[in-house]
Amino acid sequence: MIVRCALKRDSRIVEYDDLHAFCRENRNRAANAGIKDFGAIAAALGFDAYVRENIEAGIDEKVWVVVNRNALTFQREVLQYARQVLS
């Protein structure tokens, strides 16, 4: 099933490579706080999402990782369908 949504236009978004660079520069600080995961670091920095391009060879596809669920707006109809199936 495909769930359609939209990331709010005022969301704070960071490129994966920039996030990676931050992790390299601040690895001791993050590690001392017990944070190792990229998603956790992005959330701790206050970003809503991060995006990575060219994740798979031959496909011009971006992968978005949203760490703030509240930054998303979902299409309601899919929830109505889910409720019908589960009732």
């Binding site: 956790a40 959330a43 809503d48 760490v67 703030n68 669920r69 509240n70 979902f74 929830l79």
Partner: peptide, 19 residues
Amino acid sequence: IFAAIAHMQKFDQLPDLVG
């Protein structure tokens, strides 16, 4: 740890639903 940070930032709240 991710869930804890999401909670601190209020990132675990419900999203908006629209038609």
